[in-house]
Design a protein around this nucleic acid. Structure first.
Length: 217
DNA sequence: GGCCAGGACACCA
DNA sequence: TGGTGTCATGGC
């Protein structure tokens, strides 16, 4: 199976999934940091807490301080660390650009270099922000993506190899790349939390089932 | 009670 | 370059 075929199967199954959830670009960025190694259901509670307290924006976070943020995002785990990082990231973005829309005007390369220089933003979080919050044509590669690619016979790729394979096969349209990653998240949620080899997987992946005895890398 | 979740980073050899 | 410990809550 190649990427085009995988893409088509997922499109037939899911169509346009409208991923990522969030009402604003800033909410998407905040969610991208909160969801690091954390299930989305826990992130949603933290986002609601921020919203209810008028803290769901870079300016509100930058004006407050890590000590005020941490208790609000408790449900997302690592709350002290994430509180510190949300605070410093918000501050640095606003100091350098003033807003996400102005940061977008700086272009993909500069935005990427800047984001990767911030403490608390690694490869996956950076790509999520570039694609979903800033609308750049970047494909987000997470653990699920590498596992699905591996088990559909595309090989054991690293993040850059996986991206290149996608770009070479389905191009660099921002909305298409958003949707492909979204569909992979849906696939993982729908079929990979029940039992191994359930027989219903649309891409006939034997086992995304996530157990220590079973996982690759 | 144990395992896992859409990671990132510091530290070590 | 690769391995390991740390950060931590909530669902199943």
């Amino acid at each position: 199976m190649d990427i085009s075929e995988l893409h088509q199967i997922l499109l037939n199954k899911y169509g346009d999934v409208g991923w990522w959830p969030g009402d604003s670009d800033e909410e998407i960025l905040i969610g991208a940091i909160l969801t690091q190694n954390t299930s989305w259901s826990n992130v949603e509670k933290a986002i609601n807490m921020l919203k209810m307290n008028g803290m769901l924006s870079l300016s509100a976070i930058a004006k407050s301080g890590p000590g005020r943020i941490a208790p609000l995002i408790r449900s997302s785990g690592y709350y002290n660390q994430k509180g510190m990082r949300l605070f410093s990231i918000s501050k640095e973005i606003l100091e350098k650009y003033g807003s996400l829309s102005k940061m977008r005007l700086a272009g993909l390369e500069e935005a990427e270099n800047f984001l990767m220089s911030l403490k608390g933003i690694g490869r996956e979080t950076c790509d999520s922000i570039l694609n979903y919050a800033l609308d750049f044509p970047v494909f987000v590669v997470d653990k699920y993506t590498l596992r699905i690619f591996s088990r559909t016979g595309l090989g054991d790729l690293n993040i850059d190899e996986a991206k290149d394979l996608v770009y070479g096969s389905i191009g660099k349209d921002t909305e298409t790349l958003k949707n492909l990653h979204g569909m992979i998240v849906f696939l993982a949620k729908d079929y990979c939390k029940t039992k191994p080899d359930c027989g219903n997987c649309p891409v006939n992946v034997k086992c995304l089932y996530f157990l220590k005895s079973n996982r690759d890398q």
